[in-house]
Design a protein around this nucleic acid. Structure first.
Lengths: 322, 322
DNA sequence: ACGCCTTTTTAAATCGTATTGAATCACGAT
DNA sequence: ATCGTGATTCAATACGATTTAAAAAGGCGT
């Protein structure tokens, strides 16, 4: 058994020549539909994956995918790190090269690659028009009109977390979040608000504690709230990092988690609060979908976007209200 | 002018065949010294860099470099993130593929690549013997005997930071650090101690505040110390992250930085405390040296290791003692 | 059925490097 | 001077995919 099927194997299997197979792989036209199907079937049968090195050599270089991060977004967060790692791996297996693109003075990407991924975008991100105008295949992390994007179900996640706490009998539920201009945080907050209203009626007042987007930020926000006498029996933190700080502040104030206060996070990062009840977003899946949409964009398919599902992971930081 | 000189160009320039040039590049023997020198000179003249795609194709796959992180080391820190990014870029330009290796139950790397990089090692890391026994080219981040390693000058950095504060007239200098079992922290602490002793004599008592290795950890450590009435006019934090927390705690206690308390960090991470006086370690250089040693290891050169210099960057968080 | 034009397919050339079996060289021994 | 021997070097080929020029197939009108 040969370890790696080559394009020639596929060609033989399908009864055509290598050139035809290549056309099929690269979605070029000039191949009859029935032939294309044959070839695709053969590829499937042999579990064929094109060799990236050979592809690069023939093409005279890899396809460069540029990652551009808006100036407002902090880069060195655990969440971003992990996503970047998954994205790199995913791109690499498809033979693309991920490049980190700096910003010009006007905030636009300084370099334009064969395709672009935009991180940390808001509603009317000017980068979108800029890139669309240049005709560059682009995928966005976050939601926007007229462009391919992928985003976790932040709103749904916010609801999940809040409904979980409500089911446990909590009514005074605080929401600790980062700066609200970030789309993700805004939507998680919206989910929280709606869940609250649906359960408790219009009288329910949301309790938003806004601060720095870091464990330290979460800590200081909650500490300040406690010192101000704010009252709550549960916290929905908009990220795991924030949750770590929240728990620290509660402990320092002599409150037990979850006995006195329940805490839910968001993200489900590994190696952060191993026992944290949280809303998991599958970063690997998100990275994978990003690449899928990127490839669609490169092959000129029609625009589509995708909301990635999240799910509640119940662990040890939430319990029924005393 | 042709954009990319190929091996054939070099061969023509040196008046030999491509095969000979290839032998020179890959440091295989069977090339006369004078010929080798000629070829090297020609490569230099043309500024030749082998094409990685072609190399991979001919070799039947990229050389895989495995990165293994000891279980004790937290991975998702900004420092680690940045280093990883630089290492990936550096490896990629030399045609190597960086892989993230998981741990077995016994803490040994689960997969062994063509070469290995070890992160987060201590004095007698069992992984070293394990890998040396298998004959795998290995480079360590940190110091150890009988293996290639690269490490920043943690001790010297500790001295630099402390001496800077001493020069500014401070005498009660606290050192906020992470868990001391990490080699880097231990050495920074040693540098701090020695600088203190050299300046103030044996009477000088080091003031070590140990806690969690994060901004939150730094915050809580300092807050607790202040509440306990510990007295100091300056802080040397063992990392920029810690320093962020330190500054937060000081501010929350009504102390001004640097007017009331001076703070020095370590690392010089971008996008962290833009005005922080700190000890810079050049992560890009460290990553680059790691790859250099890796290549030496792969070509079977004799073992050598390298301490990377650090330097003090004076910005706005330190001032003369009132 | 034939020629003509368009669509589909093929075979061969190409990308840049590594390897290998053959050819060449240097040099001392006969 | 010739030969043998080991050390160097060369020329040719492989690696796996893309691309192009040419050939084959298909469709249409007359």
């Amino acid at each position: 058994m040969n370890l790696k099927p080559t394009i020639a194997d596929v060609a033989k299997e399908a009864g055509v020549s290598t050139g035809t197979v290549s056309r099929v792989i690269n979605a070029r036209d000039g191949v009859k539909q029935v032939t294309r199907d044959n070839v695709l079937a053969a590829m499937e049968r042999l579990n064929y994956r094109p060799d990236q090195a050979a592809r690069e050599l023939a093409l005279g270089g890899p396809l460069r995918v540029g990652l551009h991060i808006s100036a407002a977004t902090k880069r060195l967060t655990p969440f971003f790190t992990l996503f970047l790692e998954y994205l790199m791996v995913q791109l690499r297996t498809d033979g693309y090269l991920l490049e980190d693109i700096a910003s010009q003075d006007d905030g636009m990407p300084a370099d334009i690659c064969d395709a672009m991924v935009l991180f940390g975008s808001h509603e009317d991100d000017p980068r979108i028009d800029y890139l669309l105008q240049q005709g560059v295949p682009t995928v966005l992390l976050g939601v926007a009109q007229g462009v391919r994007w992928v985003a976790p179900d932040d709103y749904g996640g916010g609801r999940l977390a809040t409904e979980h706490l409500l089911r446990l009998g909590h009514q005074d539920i605080a929401h600790v979040s980062g700066l609200m201009h970030a789309q993700a945080f805004f939507n998680r907050y919206a989910g929280y608000q709606d869940a609250l209203r649906d359960a408790l009626g219009e009288t329910a007042q949301p309790l938003l504690l806004e601060g720095d987007t870091s464990s330290l930020g979460g800590y200081r926000t909650v500490r300040r709230a406690l010192e101000a006498g704010v009252n709550f029996s549960a916290v929905f933190a908009a990220s795991d990092e924030l949750a770590v700080g929240v728990i620290g502040a509660l402990e320092d104030a002599g409150l037990r988690v979850p006995t006195d206060v329940s805490v839910v996070g968001f993200d489900d990062l590994p190696e952060i609060g191993e026992a944290l009840t949280t809303v998991r977003q599958d970063l690997r899946e998100i990275a994978s979908m990003t690449v899928t949409l990127l490839k669609e964009a490169l092959s000129g398919a029609s625009v589509r976007s995708q909301v990635m599902p999240v799910r509640l992971i119940v662990r040890g930081t939430t319990t029924r209200r005393r």
